[in-house]
Amino acid sequence: MAAPATLIRARQLSRVYKLGGGDVHALRGIDCDIAEGGYVAVMGASGSGKSTFMNMLGALDTPSGGELTIAGQSLLNRTPDELAAFRNQTVGFVFQQFNLLPRTPAIDNVALPLLYRGMPAAQRRERAAACLEMVGLGDRMDHHPSQLSGGQQQRVAIARALSNEPRILLADEPTGALDSRTSEDVMDIFDQLNASGITLILVTHEAEVGARARRRIVFRDGRIVEDIQ
């Protein structure tokens, strides 16, 4: 069996926050390759740089130095609109705090990335409905976030991340705001998605969650200190 192709390639990746009282080195030269179809848990102490790393992968933040190539495209020296197109089509992001639009039905939340892709309304609805079915919320399409439980809200957020059929799913502590029972439901969905071929990278503090991944990367003080396949 041939080794799967490298999807993400980071070299000497660094991120420095310039603050008044001195620079904060959130990432200090990360070298890391992640293969297509991988299932990676990013772990480490608070403040070790996990979120900073994830934001780089999701093109939400710009590296201070080094190289970062994802799906054959370098993410350095790109215009804001090129990065927007990348976020729209190549990655899906799931946040700890869900970040759903309030007073907006679940289906419209899920369809949002499709809106920015310029898809016609009828097609958007159809695709969003299919994504909600996939996360088991086919019967909650017109509910507003405030009418959904935490676990359901996170599933809506996952459906939204999936709507554009991204190759990579990034999740920063997706179960951080959930209790252990609902966490498990959410993790089951992630397992299925990875099984269907999507590359999954998630940040977690919980050992049980980390145990589901096939690879664990541990951060400390802006560096990778452990990488267990």
Partner: peptide, 16 residues
């Protein structure tokens, strides 16, 4: 601001 951040995060262009 958070709504704008979310929209940008899922692919809204500056012009959008």
């Amino acid at each position: 601001t958070r709504e704008i951040g979310l929209r940008l995060a899922i692919g809204a262009k500056q012009a959008d």
